[in-house]
Design a binder for these strands. Structure first.
Lengths: 137, 137
DNA sequence: ATCATTGCAAACACTTTGCATACGC
DNA sequence: GCGTATGCAAAGTGTTTGCAATGAT
């Protein structure tokens, strides 16, 4: 059980139970913005058998505490971003993988009337790998 | 039944049935990116009683034919954009309304390896109106 | 012993699908 | 009449919730 994570969760007002720590660590370690089911299956395979409900409740808690952010790129499932750096996301329509895309902060022209709390930039198309393989076209 | 719409649907290879024309017109006329249920309820109220399934099937068809684009800002429901101009979306967490936000095209630094087909920029927070009302804070 | 977290299963919300009916050419 | 679009209801998928059991201090 990673101490850094324990401290981080505490700092955000989250009781660092072992499941929560594992879920957070998994989110940070995986670069591909796993879905709830991905998290559940991966941690279940590791032998930490807990329920999907726990994963849902945990990510919901993390979201509320602003420890992670939702990735709005796939329409159906929730996906998450544990990184706090500003970047965009690219989702491949063929293999359904999600990549981080470096982008510059964007400057708004006429949105200042609203109080913006979150910004989300996403792209979709065919990733380099699938283009080579010609999986789609 | 609007002729422009009929022609537009035909041009996209879509058989312009009366429901499809109405749904498309409703999408274009409404500036707030209605959900499937919004569309269904509005057109039902107008007396065009059809089923949710028809709305779902129709918007799915429109999406496939690239007549409309999905708006990725609300996690739960599908929302649509019939406009083809480049702009972002702002979703108010308090009143759940979606506003169009003018933004400049963004320049990518390192994403050129992938074939980008769609770009989506969205913001969330509290809209000007809700800020005034103090619905949230 | 108390309080929070977990797991299960049921409920829920949104979307898709199968099939019979109705419509348009 | 034939092919397609529609409507209904049922099934499917992803998410949330209620409650009992477990775990931590």
């Amino acid at each position: 059980m990673k101490h850094d994570t324990v401290e981080l969760l505490k700092a955000h007002g989250i009781n660092p139970s072992s499941q929560r720590v594992r879920i957070y660590d998994y989110l940070v370690a995986s670069k591909d913005h796993p879905s709830v089911d991905d998290i559940f299956l991966a941690l279940q395979k590791e032998g930490h058998l807990f329920s999907r409900a726990t994963v849902y409740n945990t990510v919901k808690l993390f979201l509320e505490k602003h420890l992670i952010r939702p990735v709005k790129v796939a329409s159906n499932e929730m996906r998450f971003d544990a990184s706090h750096s500003f970047h965009g996301h690219f989702r491949c329509e063929a293999c359904d993988k999600i990549f981080d895309i470096p982008i510059e902060e964007l400057s708004l022209d006429g949105a200042t009337e609203h109080q913006i709390q979150e910004t989300n930039v996403s792209f979709s198309g065919i990733c380099a790998e699938c283009l080579k393989k010609g999986k789609d076209d």
